[in-house]
Design a protein around this nucleic acid. Structure first.
Lengths: 251, 251
DNA sequence: CTTGACCCTGACGCGACGTGAGGCCGCAGG
DNA sequence: CCTGCGGCCTCACGTCGCGTCAGGGTCAAG
């Protein structure tokens, strides 16, 4: 098959295929004497995967690394795409619910708080993150462990975990409001609880790794945003408390 | 509220807010003496709408026109967003189903045809299109009519329409395969049937408007892709048949 | 042997920001 | 009082995923 046919079949432009060829994401397996690109069935398979990952928000470069990973067979890709699509489904459902909630509220003359309204944008444990998390930490033991455990979670498990998390976060916020320092025993104890919670629910999180996480809370804007939405200054506070706790344990 | 706080609340970067300010999409309603951006609650409302439309794939410029349209009250936006989100939900569900189908097939050692695999990318009556269609034709009578009628459709209605459409398309494909010309009576009759189908189900489609549609089938790559997926050469064929039919009626 | 559809390779443009650079607030601590 | 230090400001250039010509070869049908 030549470019035009493939483009029509897959619903993309010819230019897109040229682009994928040039960046090495999808090189047609053959060329005619005149230089025409010739796509084999295997190329179509690959294109299919590419388009799905693209749709899910992966940058093309990462799609390439995913597809060129020799340790990932086709079934692996299907499973991953299935997971990501279901995440997306969940997120979209949540957004629909949020809009319906707002419509309801409007029709009753009530108005929601800003926090309520942006809720769905803040609760980004969603696909966008799933994609990136995998790039950053995919392949690490922690990641594998986390994947394994979360896959085994039922909806109830998940709600329990969420409740636990919310609880610690709320108590962090309270500590912050009450004015105690991030290096106070109270704050450090909360940090320790946070660490153990992660270890229990996701992956073995040692002090060093926990400290790394803490740093991320202030360096990655989205994590910062997550904590700032709970209370202004909370990202810094939690991060500092985690460092203090790690230091306390290390010394 | 200043930029940082708003950014944290909404889960976007400060730079994004700067950008929205510069392009006039979201201008903070005030500035301090020092030039600091000051966001009022109304600005947050607007930001919320912006982010939802953005998430739904609208280009920012179009978001601006949507939001600045004085004839669109907040409830209107909510309804539209609700609609678009539900479209997205449907599409994602279809994609999940497609992946599951492929997993099933793999596990049974069967392999799908390329057409089957790209199906979900071809059946783009989805959000992506909804967004664009509204930009191109929003405000025209045809669009309004179509909106009104499709809103009133039940799921069964929709399936019936889809079946009708598939039928005519299949007969077009058959005509093409049988080798009759696009200007044959057979082809023109099919074109006429196509026109009446649109008139019945969507909006009054006169010969001139139909000819315009036909042109689009070959000029817009995605329409072309849609027909090419049914049979190679079908986009041209249908388009030509429509022109011929319009000419026949006009002369 | 022409014609028209399809293919090629540059190369520039664009949308939606990311990412510094260089410099001005503003307020807590010495 | 001034000195940090985080937050804010405005350029301004960089990036990603293509869109869109420009200039030219290719191929099947008539």
């Amino acid at each position: 098959m030549n470019v035009g046919e493939v483009a029509a079949l897959a619903g993309v432009t010819v230019r897109t295929l040229h682009h994928y060829d040039r960046i090495g994401l999808l090189t047609p397996s053959g060329r005619t004497a005149a230089g025409y690109r010739q796509y084999a069935p295997a190329d179509l398979d690959r294109l299919h995967l590419v388009l799905l990952y693209r749709e899910l928000g992966f940058p093309l470069e990462e799609v390439a690394t995913l597809l060129d990973d020799p340790s990932a067979d086709p079934a692996e890709h299907l499973r991953r795409q299935h997971r990501l699509l279901r995440d997306r489904l969940e997120r979209t459902t949540a957004m629909v619910a949020a809009v319906e909630k707002e419509m309801e509220a409007r029709s009753m003359g009530i108005s929601l708080t800003p926090e309520e309204r942006f809720e769905v944008f803040g609760d980004w444990l969603p696909e966008e993150y799933a994609a990136e998390a995998e790039e950053k930490w995919g392949g690490t033991d922690a990641w594998a462990q986390s994947q394994q455990r979360t896959r085994a979670m039922t909806k109830d498990d998940w709600l329990r975990v969420k409740a636990e998390t919310d609880d610690v976060e709320a108590r962090f916020a309270e500590a912050l409001r009450s004015g105690v320092g991030a290096d106070s025993a109270q704050a450090m104890d909360l940090a320790e609880e946070h660490r153990q919670q992660i270890s229990r629910n996701f992956y073995d999180c040692g002090y060093e790794m926990h400290a790394g996480l803490g740093r991320m809370y202030v360096e990655d804007e989205r994590f910062t945003a997550y904590y700032e939405r709970i209370a202004p200054g909370l990202a810094q506070f939690v991060s500092a408390a985690i460092q203090a706790n790690a230091t306390r344990h290390g010394s």
